[in-house]
Amino acid sequence: MADEPDEVPHLDVPVGMFEDIEDLKSQLAGLTALVEARTRGDSAEPGETSADEEEPAGGEAEVEDEWQYPPFILLLDPPQYDDELRGLIEWVEGVLVPGYLGEPSADAKWCHRWFEHSVAIARLHAAWLAGQELTDPASCGYTGPSVWHRDHLDPALRQLRGAAGPFAGCTEGEHQVTHRLPSLVPSAWTHEDGA
């Protein structure tokens, strides 16, 4: 056979590279479809098809995962709030506290009743959601955990445990939730005359 080369070159391709490329293609196709839908003014959510779109030639509609926005825990009502908080508590007490938190100190406070501080709930929940996404190699590659630590966990812990954080007034024997509530700030739109 004259068309085949005498030697086949050996290419060193990292394991998993083709899967990563296919994942990127899939993500790009999904984002492209979303951008096209939004620029057309479609009211359909991502993952839904409008009535104008045709089925693929095979006769079967393409099945896609429906896009779900992560819940912001402070906006949830019971029982969704309770379920989400229960999962967060399991993660904080089972992973975060034993794995990431050292002994509390004056420079790095921690409140054993953190779940009574709404700021702590919001920040830890956001870090937990990001961790769920960024620790899955199938969706974000192998650098996801590093990105999660750098961009989500470390800043959240700095904010929570810092001198101005929600635990600043808490000590080992005393828990204070109200110390972080701001006083009423006068509106810039209303001015009371001193007369």
Rank of each mutant, 00 (worst) to 15 (best):
D20H: 09
H125D: 11
I73D: 01
R113Q: 14
P145W: 05
L24T: 12
E90F: 04
Q176T: 10
V63C: 03
D52N: 03
L75E: 15
Y81M: 00
A164V: 03
Q27E: 14
I121K: 01
W67Y: 15
G30A: 07
D3Y: 03
V63P: 00
I73W: 01
L28T: 05
E93N: 12
G58Y: 01
C140E: 12
M17A: 13
P5D: 12
C170Q: 09
D154A: 15
K25L: 15
W110H: 09
G87P: 00
G87D: 15
P46A: 12
D42G: 15
T143P: 00
T32P: 00
P182W: 03
A168P: 02
Y69I: 01
P186M: 13
Q80G: 01
Q68E: 14
F167V: 06
S118L: 04
A130P: 04
A37V: 02
G173I: 00
E90Q: 12
R123H: 06
Q27W: 11
W148V: 02
D65C: 04
L11P: 00
H112Q: 07
W114T: 01
S187N: 05
R161H: 06
S118M: 03
A188Y: 01
V177C: 02
W110G: 01
L181T: 08
V119Q: 05
A61G: 13
H149I: 04
D77A: 15
E90W: 10
D83S: 11
V97H: 03
F18R: 12
P166E: 06
P145G: 12
I89A: 09
W114G: 01
L28A: 15
G165C: 07
V97A: 05
P145Q: 05
L96I: 14
A29Q: 11
G94P: 04
A2R: 08
G41I: 02
V35I: 13
P104N: 07
F72C: 03
D193R: 13
H152N: 13
P5V: 08
E7T: 10
P5Y: 08
L28E: 09
V97Y: 04
A163N: 12
R113H: 11
L75C: 04
P186N: 15
A168E: 11
H10L: 10
T49G: 09
P46S: 07
F18G: 06
A156F: 04
A126Y: 02
I73R: 01
Q27V: 10
P104Y: 06
L124M: 10
